Simulated assay, not measured.
Amino acid sequence: MGLFRTLASSFILLIFIYVSHQLTRFTDFTWIGTTAVIILLAFLFALVIGTFLFFWKEKNLDHRPWRDRLLDGSLTVMAYINFLVSLVILRDVFAFVEKWVMPSQFGNLYSSQATFAMLGLPLVFLIFGNAVIQVGPRLKKVPVFFKNLPKELEGLRLLHITDLHISPSLSPSFVKKLVAQTLRLQPDVIVFTGDILDSFVEKHEEEFKMLAELKAPHGIYYVPGNHEYYWNPQKGLQAFRDIGFHVLINQVQNIAFGPATLQMAGIPDPAALHFREEGPDLARVQKQFTENSFKVLLSHQPSLAAKVQTLGVDLQLSGHTHGGQFFPWNWLIVFFERYAKGLYRIGNMQLYVNQGTGYWGPRLRLGTYCELTEIVLRKEPKTE
Protein backbone atom coordinates (compact mmCIF):
# COMPACT_ATOMS: atom_id res chain seq x y z
CA MET A 1 0.00 0.00 0.00
CA GLY A 2 2.89 2.36 0.77
CA LEU A 3 4.33 1.78 -2.71
CA PHE A 4 0.94 2.44 -4.27
CA ARG A 5 0.57 5.75 -2.42
CA THR A 6 4.05 6.80 -3.54
CA LEU A 7 3.39 5.91 -7.18
CA ALA A 8 -0.03 7.61 -7.17
CA SER A 9 1.36 10.77 -5.59
CA SER A 10 4.27 10.84 -8.06
CA PHE A 11 1.90 10.42 -10.98
CA ILE A 12 -0.28 13.31 -9.79
CA LEU A 13 2.85 15.45 -9.32
CA LEU A 14 3.92 14.78 -12.92
CA ILE A 15 0.47 15.79 -14.15
CA PHE A 16 0.73 19.01 -12.12
CA ILE A 17 4.08 19.86 -13.71
CA TYR A 18 2.74 19.15 -17.21
CA VAL A 19 -0.46 21.19 -16.78
CA SER A 20 1.31 24.11 -15.09
CA HIS A 21 3.91 24.26 -17.84
CA GLN A 22 1.38 24.09 -20.68
CA LEU A 23 -0.90 26.72 -19.15
CA THR A 24 1.82 29.29 -18.45
CA ARG A 25 4.93 28.67 -20.58
CA PHE A 26 3.62 30.06 -23.87
CA THR A 27 1.32 32.83 -22.62
CA ASP A 28 2.00 36.54 -22.31
CA PHE A 29 1.36 36.55 -18.55
CA THR A 30 3.45 38.76 -16.32
CA TRP A 31 5.45 36.91 -13.69
CA ILE A 32 2.69 37.76 -11.20
CA GLY A 33 0.04 36.17 -13.40
CA THR A 34 2.18 33.10 -14.01
CA THR A 35 2.87 32.73 -10.29
CA ALA A 36 -0.84 33.10 -9.45
CA VAL A 37 -1.84 30.35 -11.89
CA ILE A 38 0.85 27.99 -10.59
CA ILE A 39 -0.12 28.66 -6.95
CA LEU A 40 -3.79 27.98 -7.75
CA LEU A 41 -2.93 24.73 -9.48
CA ALA A 42 -0.54 23.72 -6.69
CA PHE A 43 -3.29 24.27 -4.13
CA LEU A 44 -5.83 22.18 -6.08
CA PHE A 45 -3.42 19.31 -6.71
CA ALA A 46 -2.17 19.36 -3.11
CA LEU A 47 -5.74 19.24 -1.82
CA VAL A 48 -6.46 16.11 -3.83
CA ILE A 49 -3.20 14.37 -2.87
CA GLY A 50 -3.41 15.36 0.79
CA THR A 51 -7.04 14.38 1.24
CA PHE A 52 -6.67 10.96 -0.28
CA LEU A 53 -3.47 10.22 1.62
CA PHE A 54 -5.38 11.15 4.77
CA PHE A 55 -8.35 8.92 4.01
CA TRP A 56 -6.19 6.00 2.87
CA LYS A 57 -4.37 6.14 6.18
CA GLU A 58 -7.47 6.60 8.33
CA LYS A 59 -9.94 4.24 6.69
CA ASN A 60 -11.89 3.41 9.85
CA LEU A 61 -12.80 6.98 10.74
CA ASP A 62 -15.99 7.64 12.66
CA HIS A 63 -18.70 9.54 10.87
CA ARG A 64 -18.07 13.28 11.17
CA PRO A 65 -19.69 15.87 8.89
CA TRP A 66 -16.50 17.88 8.32
CA ARG A 67 -14.76 14.79 6.96
CA ASP A 68 -17.60 14.19 4.55
CA ARG A 69 -17.42 17.80 3.36
CA LEU A 70 -13.65 17.54 2.95
CA LEU A 71 -13.96 14.39 0.87
CA ASP A 72 -16.79 15.90 -1.17
CA GLY A 73 -14.75 19.01 -1.91
CA SER A 74 -11.70 17.00 -2.87
CA LEU A 75 -13.73 14.82 -5.22
CA THR A 76 -15.10 17.94 -6.91
CA VAL A 77 -11.57 19.32 -7.28
CA MET A 78 -10.48 15.97 -8.70
CA ALA A 79 -13.21 16.26 -11.34
CA TYR A 80 -12.12 19.84 -12.11
CA ILE A 81 -8.55 18.62 -12.61
CA ASN A 82 -9.81 15.78 -14.80
CA PHE A 83 -11.55 18.25 -17.12
CA LEU A 84 -8.61 20.66 -17.10
CA VAL A 85 -6.07 17.97 -17.96
CA SER A 86 -8.34 16.70 -20.74
CA LEU A 87 -8.62 20.18 -22.25
CA VAL A 88 -4.86 20.73 -22.06
CA ILE A 89 -4.18 17.42 -23.81
CA LEU A 90 -6.79 18.09 -26.51
CA ARG A 91 -5.31 21.54 -27.14
CA ASP A 92 -1.80 20.13 -27.43
CA VAL A 93 -2.93 17.41 -29.82
CA PHE A 94 -4.83 19.92 -31.96
CA ALA A 95 -1.84 22.28 -32.03
CA PHE A 96 0.48 19.44 -33.05
CA VAL A 97 -1.82 18.41 -35.90
CA GLU A 98 -2.26 22.01 -36.98
CA LYS A 99 1.47 22.65 -37.04
CA TRP A 100 2.64 19.53 -38.84
CA VAL A 101 -0.35 18.55 -40.97
CA MET A 102 -2.00 21.90 -41.66
CA PRO A 103 0.76 24.48 -41.15
CA SER A 104 -0.70 27.78 -39.96
CA GLN A 105 -0.51 30.23 -37.12
CA PHE A 106 -1.81 28.73 -33.87
CA GLY A 107 -0.49 31.20 -31.33
CA ASN A 108 -3.99 32.07 -30.11
CA LEU A 109 -4.34 28.56 -28.73
CA TYR A 110 -1.73 29.45 -26.10
CA SER A 111 -2.71 33.01 -25.36
CA SER A 112 -3.59 34.29 -21.92
CA GLN A 113 -7.24 34.42 -23.02
CA ALA A 114 -7.10 30.75 -23.99
CA THR A 115 -5.58 29.89 -20.60
CA PHE A 116 -8.36 31.73 -18.76
CA ALA A 117 -10.94 29.93 -20.91
CA MET A 118 -9.40 26.56 -20.08
CA LEU A 119 -9.39 27.37 -16.37
CA GLY A 120 -13.05 28.40 -16.55
CA LEU A 121 -14.54 25.70 -18.77
CA PRO A 122 -14.18 22.93 -16.15
CA LEU A 123 -16.37 24.99 -13.83
CA VAL A 124 -19.08 25.02 -16.50
CA PHE A 125 -18.71 21.26 -16.91
CA LEU A 126 -19.06 20.79 -13.14
CA ILE A 127 -22.28 22.81 -13.07
CA PHE A 128 -23.86 20.91 -15.95
CA GLY A 129 -22.62 17.55 -14.63
CA ASN A 130 -24.08 18.23 -11.21
CA ALA A 131 -27.40 19.27 -12.77
CA VAL A 132 -27.67 15.78 -14.28
CA ILE A 133 -27.30 14.30 -10.79
CA GLN A 134 -29.92 16.68 -9.37
CA VAL A 135 -32.45 15.51 -11.95
CA GLY A 136 -32.09 12.00 -10.52
CA PRO A 137 -32.44 8.61 -12.20
CA ARG A 138 -33.83 8.59 -15.73
CA LEU A 139 -36.04 5.65 -16.66
CA LYS A 140 -34.98 3.65 -19.70
CA LYS A 141 -37.38 1.01 -20.98
CA VAL A 142 -35.68 -1.87 -22.77
CA PRO A 143 -37.73 -4.64 -24.41
CA VAL A 144 -35.64 -7.80 -24.79
CA PHE A 145 -36.84 -10.52 -27.15
CA PHE A 146 -36.37 -14.27 -26.69
CA LYS A 147 -37.38 -17.22 -28.86
CA ASN A 148 -37.79 -19.53 -25.86
CA LEU A 149 -39.72 -17.16 -23.57
CA PRO A 150 -42.66 -18.97 -21.93
CA LYS A 151 -45.98 -17.25 -22.60
CA GLU A 152 -46.47 -16.79 -18.84
CA LEU A 153 -43.44 -14.47 -18.76
CA GLU A 154 -44.55 -12.29 -21.68
CA GLY A 155 -44.39 -8.65 -20.60
CA LEU A 156 -42.71 -9.37 -17.26
CA ARG A 157 -41.00 -6.19 -16.02
CA LEU A 158 -37.66 -6.37 -14.22
CA LEU A 159 -36.47 -3.08 -12.73
CA HIS A 160 -32.68 -3.02 -12.85
CA ILE A 161 -30.75 -0.88 -10.33
CA THR A 162 -26.97 -0.88 -10.12
CA ASP A 163 -23.97 1.15 -8.94
CA LEU A 164 -25.95 3.35 -6.59
CA HIS A 165 -22.86 3.81 -4.37
CA ILE A 166 -24.53 4.73 -1.10
CA SER A 167 -21.82 6.73 0.66
CA PRO A 168 -21.23 10.15 2.25
CA SER A 169 -20.98 11.63 -1.26
CA LEU A 170 -24.46 10.40 -2.25
CA SER A 171 -27.28 12.49 -0.82
CA PRO A 172 -30.03 10.56 1.02
CA SER A 173 -32.48 12.63 -1.03
CA PHE A 174 -31.18 10.85 -4.15
CA VAL A 175 -32.07 7.47 -2.59
CA LYS A 176 -35.47 8.82 -1.50
CA LYS A 177 -36.19 9.98 -5.06
CA LEU A 178 -35.14 6.60 -6.46
CA VAL A 179 -37.37 4.67 -4.03
CA ALA A 180 -40.39 6.88 -4.80
CA GLN A 181 -39.83 6.47 -8.54
CA THR A 182 -39.53 2.69 -8.18
CA LEU A 183 -42.74 2.42 -6.15
CA ARG A 184 -44.63 4.41 -8.79
CA LEU A 185 -43.46 2.01 -11.51
CA GLN A 186 -44.75 -1.05 -9.62
CA PRO A 187 -42.32 -3.52 -11.28
CA ASP A 188 -42.84 -7.28 -11.16
CA VAL A 189 -39.26 -7.93 -10.02
CA ILE A 190 -36.51 -5.64 -8.74
CA VAL A 191 -32.85 -6.56 -9.21
CA PHE A 192 -29.71 -4.92 -7.82
CA THR A 193 -26.43 -5.79 -9.54
CA GLY A 194 -23.82 -4.54 -7.10
CA ASP A 195 -21.98 -1.48 -5.81
CA ILE A 196 -25.15 -0.42 -4.03
CA LEU A 197 -23.31 0.20 -0.76
CA ASP A 198 -19.93 1.96 -0.83
CA SER A 199 -19.35 2.77 2.83
CA PHE A 200 -19.75 1.31 6.31
CA VAL A 201 -23.36 0.24 6.71
CA GLU A 202 -23.56 1.82 10.19
CA LYS A 203 -23.35 5.28 8.59
CA HIS A 204 -26.39 4.75 6.38
CA GLU A 205 -29.31 3.56 8.49
CA GLU A 206 -31.45 6.31 6.94
CA GLU A 207 -30.85 5.08 3.40
CA PHE A 208 -31.53 1.45 4.36
CA LYS A 209 -34.84 2.44 5.91
CA MET A 210 -35.74 3.98 2.56
CA LEU A 211 -34.69 0.86 0.62
CA ALA A 212 -36.79 -1.26 2.98
CA GLU A 213 -39.89 0.42 1.52
CA LEU A 214 -39.31 -1.18 -1.88
CA LYS A 215 -41.81 -3.82 -2.92
CA ALA A 216 -42.19 -6.17 -5.87
CA PRO A 217 -44.69 -9.06 -6.12
CA HIS A 218 -42.05 -11.54 -7.27
CA GLY A 219 -39.21 -10.38 -5.04
CA ILE A 220 -36.14 -8.17 -4.78
CA TYR A 221 -32.81 -9.77 -5.70
CA TYR A 222 -29.30 -8.52 -5.02
CA VAL A 223 -25.68 -9.44 -5.76
CA PRO A 224 -22.63 -7.57 -4.40
CA GLY A 225 -20.20 -5.64 -6.56
CA ASN A 226 -16.53 -4.98 -5.89
CA HIS A 227 -17.17 -1.93 -3.69
CA GLU A 228 -19.26 -3.82 -1.13
CA TYR A 229 -16.15 -5.80 -0.24
CA TYR A 230 -14.19 -2.73 0.82
CA TRP A 231 -16.39 -2.04 3.86
CA ASN A 232 -16.91 -5.09 6.09
CA PRO A 233 -18.84 -7.10 3.48
CA GLN A 234 -20.60 -9.52 5.82
CA LYS A 235 -22.25 -6.68 7.75
CA GLY A 236 -23.28 -5.07 4.49
CA LEU A 237 -24.76 -8.27 3.06
CA GLN A 238 -26.67 -8.91 6.27
CA ALA A 239 -28.11 -5.39 6.14
CA PHE A 240 -29.60 -6.16 2.71
CA ARG A 241 -31.01 -9.45 4.01
CA ASP A 242 -32.54 -7.63 6.97
CA ILE A 243 -34.60 -5.37 4.69
CA GLY A 244 -35.96 -8.31 2.70
CA PHE A 245 -33.59 -8.53 -0.26
CA HIS A 246 -32.75 -12.01 -1.60
CA VAL A 247 -28.95 -11.96 -1.51
CA LEU A 248 -27.72 -14.41 -4.16
CA ILE A 249 -24.18 -15.68 -3.58
CA ASN A 250 -23.81 -18.41 -6.20
CA GLN A 251 -27.44 -19.23 -5.59
CA VAL A 252 -30.52 -19.72 -7.74
CA GLN A 253 -34.03 -18.69 -6.72
CA ASN A 254 -37.00 -20.33 -8.46
CA ILE A 255 -39.94 -18.04 -9.24
CA ALA A 256 -43.10 -19.84 -10.37
CA PHE A 257 -45.44 -18.38 -12.99
CA GLY A 258 -48.04 -21.12 -13.33
CA PRO A 259 -46.38 -23.99 -15.21
CA ALA A 260 -43.40 -21.79 -16.13
CA THR A 261 -40.38 -21.14 -13.93
CA LEU A 262 -38.06 -18.16 -13.96
CA GLN A 263 -34.75 -18.98 -12.29
CA MET A 264 -33.03 -15.93 -10.84
CA ALA A 265 -29.34 -16.63 -10.30
CA GLY A 266 -26.65 -14.45 -8.80
CA ILE A 267 -22.89 -14.52 -8.43
CA PRO A 268 -20.62 -12.31 -6.30
CA ASP A 269 -17.98 -10.03 -7.75
CA PRO A 270 -14.51 -11.59 -8.30
CA ALA A 271 -13.14 -8.95 -5.89
CA ALA A 272 -14.53 -11.15 -3.10
CA LEU A 273 -11.55 -13.47 -3.53
CA HIS A 274 -9.13 -10.66 -2.56
CA PHE A 275 -10.92 -10.37 0.79
CA ARG A 276 -11.08 -14.13 1.43
CA GLU A 277 -14.80 -14.16 0.73
CA GLU A 278 -16.71 -16.53 -1.53
CA GLY A 279 -16.08 -15.69 -5.18
CA PRO A 280 -18.12 -16.53 -8.29
CA ASP A 281 -18.72 -20.28 -8.71
CA LEU A 282 -20.38 -20.88 -12.05
CA ALA A 283 -20.24 -24.66 -11.73
CA ARG A 284 -22.24 -24.46 -8.51
CA VAL A 285 -24.80 -22.21 -10.18
CA GLN A 286 -25.12 -24.52 -13.16
CA LYS A 287 -25.97 -27.47 -10.91
CA GLN A 288 -29.00 -25.56 -9.62
CA PHE A 289 -30.42 -24.83 -13.07
CA THR A 290 -33.27 -26.91 -14.46
CA GLU A 291 -33.60 -27.75 -18.14
CA ASN A 292 -36.82 -25.98 -19.17
CA SER A 293 -36.63 -22.87 -17.00
CA PHE A 294 -36.04 -19.32 -18.20
CA LYS A 295 -32.73 -18.23 -16.68
CA VAL A 296 -31.67 -14.74 -15.60
CA LEU A 297 -28.28 -14.22 -13.99
CA LEU A 298 -27.15 -11.17 -12.01
CA SER A 299 -23.46 -10.34 -12.17
CA HIS A 300 -21.88 -7.02 -11.31
CA GLN A 301 -19.16 -7.56 -13.89
CA PRO A 302 -20.29 -7.73 -17.54
CA SER A 303 -16.85 -9.13 -18.42
CA LEU A 304 -17.95 -12.56 -17.13
CA ALA A 305 -20.58 -12.85 -19.88
CA ALA A 306 -18.56 -15.15 -22.14
CA LYS A 307 -18.35 -17.74 -19.37
CA VAL A 308 -21.90 -17.20 -18.17
CA GLN A 309 -23.44 -17.84 -21.59
CA THR A 310 -22.00 -21.39 -21.57
CA LEU A 311 -24.32 -22.21 -18.65
CA GLY A 312 -27.43 -21.84 -20.80
CA VAL A 313 -28.39 -18.48 -19.27
CA ASP A 314 -30.94 -16.49 -21.27
CA LEU A 315 -30.30 -13.01 -19.87
CA GLN A 316 -27.44 -11.53 -17.86
CA LEU A 317 -27.88 -8.18 -16.10
CA SER A 318 -24.78 -6.22 -15.09
CA GLY A 319 -23.41 -2.79 -14.20
CA HIS A 320 -19.92 -1.74 -13.04
CA THR A 321 -18.86 0.38 -16.02
CA HIS A 322 -20.89 3.56 -15.25
CA GLY A 323 -20.74 4.11 -19.01
CA GLY A 324 -17.57 6.07 -18.21
CA GLN A 325 -19.65 8.48 -16.05
CA PHE A 326 -18.11 11.72 -17.33
CA PHE A 327 -15.93 13.18 -20.07
CA PRO A 328 -13.51 11.96 -21.36
CA TRP A 329 -14.04 8.53 -19.81
CA ASN A 330 -17.45 8.16 -21.45
CA TRP A 331 -15.48 8.13 -24.73
CA LEU A 332 -12.60 5.99 -23.49
CA ILE A 333 -14.59 3.33 -21.61
CA VAL A 334 -14.86 1.18 -24.75
CA PHE A 335 -11.08 0.63 -24.61
CA PHE A 336 -11.33 -0.77 -21.06
CA GLU A 337 -14.65 -2.60 -21.14
CA ARG A 338 -15.78 -4.80 -24.01
CA TYR A 339 -19.38 -4.40 -22.88
CA ALA A 340 -19.63 -0.75 -21.83
CA LYS A 341 -23.37 -0.10 -21.78
CA GLY A 342 -26.56 -1.24 -23.44
CA LEU A 343 -27.75 -4.53 -24.93
CA TYR A 344 -25.47 -7.21 -26.39
CA ARG A 345 -26.01 -10.70 -27.79
CA ILE A 346 -23.38 -13.26 -26.79
CA GLY A 347 -24.04 -16.66 -28.26
CA ASN A 348 -27.59 -17.60 -27.28
CA MET A 349 -27.56 -15.23 -24.33
CA GLN A 350 -28.38 -11.54 -24.13
CA LEU A 351 -26.53 -9.16 -21.84
CA TYR A 352 -27.75 -5.80 -20.64
CA VAL A 353 -25.28 -3.37 -19.01
CA ASN A 354 -26.87 -0.55 -17.02
CA GLN A 355 -24.60 2.53 -16.97
CA GLY A 356 -25.29 3.10 -13.28
CA THR A 357 -28.24 4.37 -11.28
CA GLY A 358 -26.08 6.51 -9.00
CA TYR A 359 -22.51 7.70 -9.37
CA TRP A 360 -19.07 7.17 -7.88
CA GLY A 361 -16.88 9.94 -6.55
CA PRO A 362 -17.70 13.47 -7.77
CA ARG A 363 -21.37 14.45 -7.84
CA LEU A 364 -21.59 14.70 -11.60
CA ARG A 365 -22.26 12.94 -14.84
CA LEU A 366 -21.32 14.43 -18.18
CA GLY A 367 -22.07 12.52 -21.36
CA THR A 368 -23.99 9.90 -19.36
CA TYR A 369 -26.97 9.91 -17.00
CA CYS A 370 -28.22 8.08 -13.92
CA GLU A 371 -30.01 5.09 -15.40
CA LEU A 372 -32.97 3.20 -13.97
CA THR A 373 -33.69 0.36 -16.40
CA GLU A 374 -37.01 -1.38 -16.93
CA ILE A 375 -36.28 -4.66 -18.69
CA VAL A 376 -39.40 -6.00 -20.40
CA LEU A 377 -39.34 -9.66 -21.44
CA ARG A 378 -40.85 -10.23 -24.85
CA LYS A 379 -41.48 -13.26 -27.05
CA GLU A 380 -39.56 -12.98 -30.30
CA PRO A 381 -42.07 -13.01 -33.17
CA LYS A 382 -41.88 -15.91 -35.57
CA THR A 383 -40.46 -15.15 -38.99
CA GLU A 384 -41.99 -16.75 -42.05
Rank of each mutant, 00 (worst) to 15 (best):
2 G>Q: 15
4 F>E: 14
7 L>C: 12
10 S>G: 15
14 L>D: 09
14 L>N: 09
19 V>I: 06
24 T>H: 04
26 F>Q: 15
27 T>S: 13
29 F>C: 05
29 F>T: 10
29 F>D: 14
31 W>K: 13
44 L>A: 14
51 T>C: 12
54 F>Q: 10
58 E>N: 15
59 K>L: 12
60 N>A: 13
60 N>M: 12
61 L>I: 13
61 L>S: 14
65 P>H: 03
66 W>A: 11
72 D>F: 14
72 D>A: 13
76 T>A: 15
76 T>I: 08
77 V>A: 13
79 A>I: 00
79 A>C: 05
81 I>P: 00
84 L>F: 09
87 L>I: 00
88 V>L: 08
96 F>M: 13
99 K>Y: 13
103 P>N: 06
106 F>P: 00
108 N>I: 12
109 L>A: 11
112 S>Y: 06
118 M>W: 01
121 L>N: 05
124 V>R: 03
124 V>M: 12
129 G>S: 02
132 V>Y: 07
132 V>T: 13
134 Q>A: 11
136 G>D: 07
136 G>R: 03
141 K>Y: 03
143 P>G: 07
144 V>T: 09
150 P>S: 10
153 L>M: 08
153 L>A: 04
154 E>S: 00
156 L>K: 01
162 T>S: 14
162 T>W: 02
163 D>G: 01
170 L>D: 13
174 F>T: 00
175 V>W: 00
175 V>M: 05
177 K>G: 05
179 V>S: 07
180 A>H: 05
181 Q>S: 11
186 Q>Y: 08
189 V>H: 04
189 V>I: 14
194 G>F: 00
194 G>W: 02
194 G>E: 12
198 D>E: 11
201 V>C: 03
205 E>N: 11
211 L>M: 08
217 P>S: 08
218 H>Q: 12
218 H>R: 12
218 H>T: 06
219 G>S: 03
223 V>K: 00
229 Y>I: 05
233 P>E: 09
234 Q>I: 05
237 L>F: 08
240 F>E: 03
245 F>V: 12
254 N>S: 13
257 F>D: 09
258 G>S: 00
260 A>H: 01
260 A>I: 01
260 A>Y: 03
272 A>T: 08
279 G>T: 06
288 Q>D: 05
289 F>G: 09
291 E>M: 00
291 E>I: 01
295 K>Q: 10
297 L>P: 10
297 L>D: 12
302 P>V: 00
306 A>T: 15
320 H>A: 12
323 G>Q: 07
327 F>H: 01
329 W>I: 10
333 I>S: 14
335 F>V: 08
335 F>L: 13
339 Y>W: 07
341 K>Y: 15
343 L>W: 07
351 L>W: 09
353 V>T: 11
356 G>A: 05
361 G>F: 02
362 P>N: 07
364 L>K: 08
365 R>D: 06
366 L>N: 05
367 G>P: 04
371 E>S: 07
373 T>Q: 12
375 I>G: 06
379 K>I: 12
383 T>I: 14
383 T>A: 13
384 E>A: 14
